[in-house]
Amino acid sequence: MARVAFQGERGAYSEMAALQYFPGATLVPKKSFSDAFSAVEEKKAGFAVIPVENSIEGSVGEVYDLLAGTRLAAVGEVHQRVRHCLIANRGVKMGDVKVAYSHPQALGQCRAYLQKKKMQAMPAYDTAGSVKMVKEQKLRDAAAIASRRAAELYGMEILDEGIEDRKNNYTRFLVMSPAKKLPKSDGSYKTSIIFSVKHVPGALFGILGEFAIGRLNLTKIESRPTKETPWEYNFYVDFEGHAADAAAKKALAAIRGRTSYLKVLGSYKKAESA
């Protein structure tokens, strides 16, 4: 049975994504994203399921920084529907709640709701962890934003459900493992790469042009500071296809000489459409 690390407490959306991808797995909750990566790198778990972007709030910057430094490979992808609940201790009424605790991404996804209800948004490290904290501290003027599953696990009361500002709310997760061999391609794969460009005019344009020449569809491009040299960036690109496919191999070979750094994070089967 697979051991799968995730960030957060039981009931977190990361746990739900892990169970969706690995039904019946032994789940290993970790305090931070870094701890989840380390659990796999240190062979305390075989996989980690890590959120990389949300359809409303965008990319998880900390995770992208970790992807640049990890030895792990991306071997899978899963989309998790996010439906937020306002969760409080039993007996607490909506009018009692002055503060809402949750992960910053969840708070951002419920920004308009919280403003309408005149509740102060208070960041915490995890959605389900916020529910656990509100319960353990017996807070009567605060609630947490998390999943229905978290409310049920901790025996808490749901004051409101579906409070996200946009109902088409999904989080995309990558499945990370120490796998070295790329799985065989069957035409339904995506590949993730990381690169930095040389400081010459048109460098990024030239690199992206190679994907256009190969008719490779880019599904995402993200830039993050390298953290080493001011105003230098790593670019994170996802494209449709497998790194072992002829068109992808040709494009990757062509851009290698145009980059100062290139890392193929992995090829993996595309998640089913949300």
Rank of each mutant, 00 (worst) to 15 (best):
E161Y: 12
K190S: 12
V75Q: 07
R71S: 13
F22Q: 14
A151I: 03
A25Q: 14
R172S: 06
S260F: 00
F22T: 03
A106V: 13
F205I: 13
D35V: 04
A143Y: 03
G155D: 15
E152P: 01
G61D: 15
A73F: 00
A248I: 03
A100L: 13
I50E: 13
I50F: 05
M16N: 09
T70W: 09
D65R: 07
G187D: 04
L139V: 00
L204I: 00
M133W: 06
D65T: 04
A5H: 08
R149A: 10
D35Y: 13
G209L: 08
R256W: 07
A203L: 05
D245P: 03
E152T: 01
L159I: 07
D35F: 09
G257V: 01
S38Y: 04
K227D: 15
G187F: 03
P123C: 11
F37N: 02
K132W: 10
L72Y: 05
T191G: 05
V175R: 03
R172M: 15
H84Y: 15
V63P: 01
E161F: 06
G206P: 00
Y233P: 03
Q80L: 01
K44A: 06
P29N: 06
R224I: 11
V237S: 02
L86D: 14
K249S: 13
S273W: 15
Y261P: 02
D126C: 08
M176S: 09
E164S: 09
G8D: 11
G129T: 05
A150P: 01
M156D: 14
D238L: 06
G155P: 06
L208R: 05
P183L: 12
T191S: 09
Y13L: 13
Q120C: 01
Q137C: 04
S260E: 15
A246S: 10
R83Y: 06
Q109E: 15
A12F: 08
D186E: 15
K184Y: 11
G58W: 14
V60S: 02
A244Q: 14
R148V: 02
V200L: 14
V175S: 05
A150D: 09
P123R: 06
M1T: 03
A274I: 00
S188Q: 12
A18F: 06
D186H: 07
V99G: 00
L174F: 15
V40P: 00
R81P: 02
T219V: 09
S273T: 10
V63N: 08
I221A: 02
H103P: 01
A17K: 07
G108D: 14
G46S: 12
K93D: 14
P104V: 00
M16V: 03
F173K: 09
A251Y: 04
E240W: 08
K181H: 08
A2Q: 11
L204T: 02
E152Q: 13
T191P: 04
G241P: 02
M119Y: 11
F235C: 10
Q109A: 14
E15N: 11
R71H: 04
G91L: 08
A243V: 01
Y125F: 12
L216I: 04
H79A: 12
Q105S: 10
E232I: 01
P201D: 12
L27A: 08
A112G: 00
G214H: 08
K135P: 01
A144H: 10
E164G: 11
A17W: 08
G95V: 05
M16T: 03
